[in-house]
Design a binder for these strands. Sequence first.
DNA 1: TCATATTATGACCGTCGGTCACAATAAGTC
DNA 2: GACTTATTGTGACCGACGGTCATAATATGA
Lengths: 209, 209
Amino acid sequence: MAGMDRKQREFERREAEILDVALALFSKPNWEAVSIDKIAKATDIGKGTVYKHFASKDELLFRLMMRFYHGLLAHLQEHDSDQGNIIESFQGIFQLAFRYHLKHREYRYIVEYCNRIDFKERADESWHTSFMELDKAFGDWGDPMILAAMEQGLIVRRPLEQINIGMKACFEGTVDMLWAGKDWCLHGDEEEIIESVTEFMLAGLVGRV
Amino acid sequence: MAGMDRKQREFERREAEILDVALALFSKPNWEAVSIDKIAKATDIGKGTVYKHFASKDELLFRLMMRFYHGLLAHLQEHDSDQGNIIESFQGIFQLAFRYHLKHREYRYIVEYCNRIDFKERADESWHTSFMELDKAFGDWGDPMILAAMEQGLIVRRPLEQINIGMKACFEGTVDMLWAGKDWCLHGDEEEIIESVTEFMLAGLVGRV
DNA sequence: TCATATTATGACCGTCGGTCACAATAAGTC
DNA sequence: GACTTATTGTGACCGACGGTCATAATATGA
């Protein structure tokens, strides 16, 4: 029914609005102090209404985290990395991904929160699945490039997983450093971090002869 | 006065007891649900007494985190890494450090919590200083080895900071992976992670020719 | 206009981190 | 041992939190 649809649309529009308002509040320091009630007040709806959309505060945060990572994946995919030299392509991809994190700093508290051990432990099955699918999507996109580089003899031949573990660890650790800000890193500013880690990751990717 | 000392000793003994009990409680899943009151009850003292020792819950957690990292540094220092081959020494050190984290899993929630951006942002000046001193202590211990390897031409010559940034990022990211457990990592078990990352880090350390 | 189904709401609950006026205890003095 | 004084221990209390649910408000269909 047309009426039904309009109601449905209205419901979804409101959900998107809650997410936007929540992100705006969560992006500022003292984000721990942002309660569901404050989000509701800022959206001009009742607290109970928020819980019609999200079963818990964690679910709201999880949804925002997924939005961030899907945005990252789309950003990487739409970027044309078809340069002549595959190694240089990787260099560009790393930097692109790092800069995406810096550009969307507003997600930093949320993404870090959702990546914590305890969050993952209390996450329900469907979130776990979503996490895994995301990981797989990144793999489906990146793995062929690594394999091609191995085929061309540009990087040391070894199991794909071995490479991915190192890359992922290094990447996640770097994101933490970048988001923590230079006050908490003895070693230089953002640009210096990106440059250094990119070089480090390329060396790790290529491998020891 | 002797009486004064005994009282002082008693006070400190109790403080250590609080820390031990708190660690025992914080080490189990659902650690977020551990309140100061529960720690007090488990130590058989009043809640207010806990606050005579620690200004806040965060301070208690911070103290435990420092205990962990000082233990790690001591563990690394007491380990004799004077092998013939410097590169093999590094390999041994990486694995030693990773295994230390796995052995002391009871600190995992605490250490991860204290490394979060928001925790660092609300940390007061003295904690910040402690953080930095710890970082410097690790540097004082590790830097000479890297410089020696560079001197011997075993690794590519470049600024020390550049190497340390990559190493730190990769190390921290790996610890997160190890502590998250294999349910949250597409890529194999703990041993496989340690092996892969160690190889990745060695390649990053040596650098591209 | 009314009956019915759906959605929105905020008072309410148990619990939390943190405070503070006061109780308990020890030390020092005679 | 009794009295004063200084220090340390305590749990009732506070405001705020995440989450619930009976009820109010609103839209739909006849």
